[in-house]
Design a protein around this nucleic acid. Sequence first.
RNA 1: GCGGCUGUGGCGUAAUUGGUAGCCGCGCCAGACUUAGGAUCUGGUGACGAGAGUCGUAAGGGUUCGAGUCCCUUCAGCCGCACCA
Length: 822
Amino acid sequence: MRYPFKDIENKWQEYWNQHNVDKTNFSKIDNKLYCLVMFIYPSGAKLHCGHWYNYGPTDTWARFKKLNGFNVFEPMGYDAFGLPAENYAIKTGVHPYDSTIKNIEDIRLQLKKMGCMYDWNAELMTCVPDYYKWNQWLFIQLYKKGLAYRKNAPVNWCPDCNTVLANEQVLADGGCERCGTTVVRKNLTQWFFKITDYADELLVGLDKINWPEKTKTMQRNWIGKSFGTEVAFKVDKSHEEIKVFTTRPDTLFGVTYLVLAPEHPLVDKITTPEYQEAVEKYRDSIKSLSETDRTSTVKEKTGVPIGAYAINPVNSAKIPIWIADYALITYGTGAVMAVPAHDERDFEFASRFNLPIKKVILEPGTDENTPLTIAYTEIGTMINSSVFNGVMSDVGIDSVTDFLESRQLGERKINYRLRDWLISRQRYWGTPIPVIHCKDCGEVLVPESDLPVTLPYEVEFSSKGKSPLTSNPDFMNVKCPQCGKDAQRDPDTMDTFVDSSWYYFRYLNPAFSNGIFDAELGNNWTPVDMYVGGAEHATMHLLYARFIHKFLRDIGLAASDEPFRTLIHQGTITNQGAKMSKSKGNVINPDDYIVNTGADVFRLYLMFMGPYEMGGDWNDKGISGTERFVLRTYELFKQYTGILSDNTPPDKFNIVDLSEQEKLIYRKINQTINKFNTELASFRFNTAIAALMELINELSKHLSACRKELIAYSLERFAVMIAPLAPHLGEECWEIIGKRSSLFENPVWFEVDPLALTVDTVSIALQVNGKLRGTVDVPLDAPVDVVREKAYSLESFSKHVMDKSVVKEIFVANKILNIVVK
RNA sequence: GCGGCUGUGGCGUAAUUGGUAGCCGCGCCAGACUUAGGAUCUGGUGACGAGAGUCGUAAGGGUUCGAGUCCCUUCAGCCGCACCA
């Protein structure tokens, strides 16, 4: 390849750097555009193809916007805390701080070679006190509002990572999000952020943001809002009552037993002595099961009665109380009213344990005596339901609830599947929790003036199951800020998702020392206009960040309701069908490509592979195509070096003055700009590149036959379009034809000449009975008579019409003439 | 099990949104330049057929003058959810 990519790419990277081309002027806000990619998680390997696929095309979009006149801010940073660095330390003895800093240095060099217009003044990393101090500050503000609290609860414990995990970090198969090890349940006292307080707002806010529907659906399902009724059942021969949550109060008359979660606190109180042993045995038997095993729909339902009975508040029926693991302590009240006739799970359970099945909703077309083979869960007529007999069950939901509310037997209730965010981790490489535990004063916040609580360097990493920080007495032992007596620091660190919940604010001025971030800048520059990152964060980072954003708004630090206005997920690049990972040894190293073809070619190829949101399997067979394209472009421009010095192209040409070949070129240029604008605006890089390839094919055929002004006109526009895609090449081409300043320093974008978009002749498809029988070229908007006449004079067409009677004629101007014959 | 997305030449893909299927690129074939070509340029390239033509967008059916596009059934792949009462 004769294209000197190395020289050219170095040259422009140096130029951009020296002239501060990529630095954002934050004072100009009328045309601001904040373009963000999910920052890099450096605690393991270096940049791979997937990162490039995320960052390169997004930078192309940002550059396109910059050329279009936007004041673009595009930052990059490092999500630098986290388990991998610590696990690496356990394995090799290299301290997480050292390995992370080293890694970041390597990654920074790689990033700079990509030629993205990151504002390096804005670079940040989360593992330094300057940053995590504000995690601690945030924690304190949440605590003060009652939104950070500690409780003992059944939590997800990863035995391999030796730490608890948030619900969001447990995979569908019950594995740990980081290492895949099966997560077990443990009862532990842990710190939580009360995201559930924002459940409803997190739900309705989704309607206002431009995110992929799929992601919004996932968040909606994760939040899991359901409307229902809470009904109180008295326990027979006891003062206790059991509250159940149900979405089907219309089936209340059909309750034949009650189920408590095995962990339900009432179980110990109301189990009768003769059942105690069986209950304990049952509880033991399910202890070893993971949450996923317990909630698996394929597993046969298990449970035991506890000897106590409950009274149905609407008909005073005495019904047995059971415990069963299909009742979850973590959802609703931890108790279920079982209506086997109208709930599949209850039906299965009742059938297995010979519990009565009482029909209270009649399926249309059946009668009371029709036996049930499966639960009937649809709408029907209520029966065996006292005063509600004959009412349709969908109406009955409200009527029964009204009835219960009027007698104080129950009330309407909204339940969420979302649970509070467990943020403490029994790990070292994270933000220390700013709390001191005092024997007398209990949990005491570290005063804000004492922040940051600095993460000590010296710790023992392999202290299994205990927070590593406990191994450093200098860190752990402190005086209580309230009473001054000996006390101990909280030994846990925060989930790294806390770091990433507000980093987009900090980017605006990472050196800001008067607060978590510069709120004025924050108000001017957020929400983020475009956010690009992987879909795997749908119910983790992307949910947490929305929560924290709303909290920051509520304490007066943010003006908007949502952090990310538009969200796009890049597809996944796989290798031989498998996700690239270090452990599988199938990672494609982009560095090799940069050395062999240059950054421009590589990012062009990534964009050309296919639709951005689809991703695909890695295959470099086609890279020579983009290589050739770059070379052809470069050589075309070289042919016309300095053309602008003695030819000043006009803003537009008058089409009628142009020769046939000039018309062709003039139209093609304008059509391409037009197409390019719409394609690039919506991240369709592949089609934008295809349009430019078509253009260069056309240019290399006809450009030399054009007058100099039109050549200059065409090349100016071509350079501007190639620039966002291949920025070094774009700048170089811009310079070759004689432009004096950098394109990205003085952005330019050309208007389309609308007159050049219309053609004067169109090719019309001729069909007989829907089959193509030829085409004719006619003037634009030619009437049917003209087209018909031309069509019939065409033998390949007319021979299919001859000797047949015309039934119908369909004519769509400029498109098609279809004759239906018999 | 439920829900969603996807399925187009040898390959990656495109298709003005119901109107000439296969743009662009890879690969392949032929030619040009060349001491040489795994460089570059030009042309060709869905299948079958000598040709007229016929067939062709996972499979089958339907709506329509006309379907890759809309509807129904089935299959395959990917993703999400999975006892949430």
